[in-house]
Amino acid sequence: MLTSAGARRALVWIAAIASAVSAAMIVFYVPNDRVQGVVQRIFYFHLALAWVAYLAFFLVLVASVVYLVSRDLRWDAFARASAELGVLFTTLVLIVGSLWGKPIWNTWWTWDPRLTTTLVLWFIYVAYLMLRAYTPDVERGARFGAILGIVGFVDVPIVHFSVQWWRSLHPDPVFARSDPQLPTPMIVTLLVTIAAMTLVFCALLTYRTMLERMRDDNRALEDDEVGERVYA
């Protein structure tokens, strides 16, 4: 990952600027949706948050596989960081989705396939965080996390299909827009928002991974110290 402090700080600045640009576009630039009105603007960051959440869990999968093969705990630190961020973003997806659903469908929640899959996803990775927290041995926790990181992500498409089939008779609320094809300003805003959110995620991930590795190193130093005090 980005190891130089200067590069990390630069990433933070780029992410911040991109976020400001995206926010400005969402508020001022993009036109109102004819059907949903102003509230449709939630769509841009709702989708960006969801994209980042799935990206985070995909990275957990990759890190998990690499860890199992290499047994390098630094990859596990990366997985831990990405999983925690993934849960953060998934939580936001659910909250923001709920805040969007209330005005347009008059309901805080609906069991439509995408929201339901996101909810199951949330539970899977909360279980991941709990598993890590409740496994006292660090190396074992890494192995367990890696297994769940793989099993959990592989499950996501299966969950999606099963929920979709299950809801196939239900007229689920559709994220309808006035035009079936997104007009260009909307596409551009969407892409900028996704890019900004991804940059924010990368910045957070860089620092979170750094924190995990610092904590791992501190723990090792502490064990050394205890060892020396015992044997001195």
Binding site: N32, V35, Q36, G37, V38, V39, R41, I42, L99, W100, K102, P103, I104, W105, N106, P173, V174, A176
Partner: peptide, 14 residues
């Protein structure tokens, strides 16, 4: 099919 939305009320949600 989403119902007609009062644009002012929904700003709060946004």
């Amino acid at each position: 099919m989403p119902e007609a939305v009062d644009p002012m009320a929904s700003v709060g949600y946004l």
